[in-house]
């Protein structure tokens, strides 16, 4: 693929932002700053912008706290990916990070549970976890997935890609519906 083709691909896939590397505190601040400006310029109504921003904050905190190193013990290889794009109906927030194979089952259960709940049940579950869970050392408190499902109003899509005996690559895709333009008659 030559450079122009690469450029066309980025344009045609409506990629608003694409990042791979270590998610540091500075990177999070920078990405949020860029996305606030970008979302302002596509003039989405306040609530869609807020939903995207909320999901993005949670996604990046997940990457920040839970990314495993590609090379065991080498924190410089805690590489992850983040991409934001859209189509006619949705904005997509896509993340990918390494995860230990023995952590997959619990994460899968958690997301499946969140995806199985109705809007009202999700709210009840949120209140329950908010009230009962102690704050974990990573501060995540298990609310992240519930919150993303609530804020986006959509099911969470995920996939685990095989890497080696100890690691897999965890893909999470959250979508937020665009505002439907009002039809003039």
């Amino acid at each position: 693929m030559n450079t122009y083709e690469k450029f066309r691909k980025l344009m045609d896939n409506h990629i608003m932002l694409s990042f791979k590397g270590e998610i540091t505190s500075d990177i999070i601040t920078m990405v949020l700053q860029i996305m606030e400006t970008r979302l302002d310029s596509v003039s989405e109504k306040g609530n869609v912008k807020k939903k995207i921003f909320n999901v993005l904050v949670e996604c990046m905190q997940n990457l920040y706290h839970h990314s495993e190193a590609e090379e065991p013990g080498n924190v410089d290889t805690r590489r992850a990916m983040l991409e934001l794009f859209y189509d006619n109906d949705f904005y997509y927030i896509l993340t990918g990070n390494y995860i230990k194979n023995d952590a997959i089952a619990a994460l899968r259960d958690r997301i499946d549970r969140v995806n199985s709940l109705s809007k009202e049940d999700l709210r009840r579950y949120y209140r329950e976890i908010l009230d009962n869970n102690i704050i974990s050392d990573k501060g995540g408190a298990d609310l992240g997935m519930i919150d993303m499902a609530r804020k986006s109003g959509q099911k969470l899509f995920y996939q685990f890609h095989d890497v080696n005996d100890s690691l897999s690559f965890f893909e999470l895709r959250v979508k937020v519906a665009k505002n439907k333009p009002k039809l003039d008659k």
């Binding site: 807020k50 921003f53 909320n54 904050v57 949670e58 905190q61 908010l130 009230d131 869970n133 704050i135 990573k138 501060g139 995540g140 408190a141 609310l143 992240g144 919150d147």
Partner: peptide
């Protein structure tokens, strides 16, 4: 609050 993350939500409680 305009935005808060889920780890802040515990502290607000």
């Amino acid at each position: 609050l305009e935005y808060f993350n889920t780890s802040s939500s515990k502290y607000i409680l």
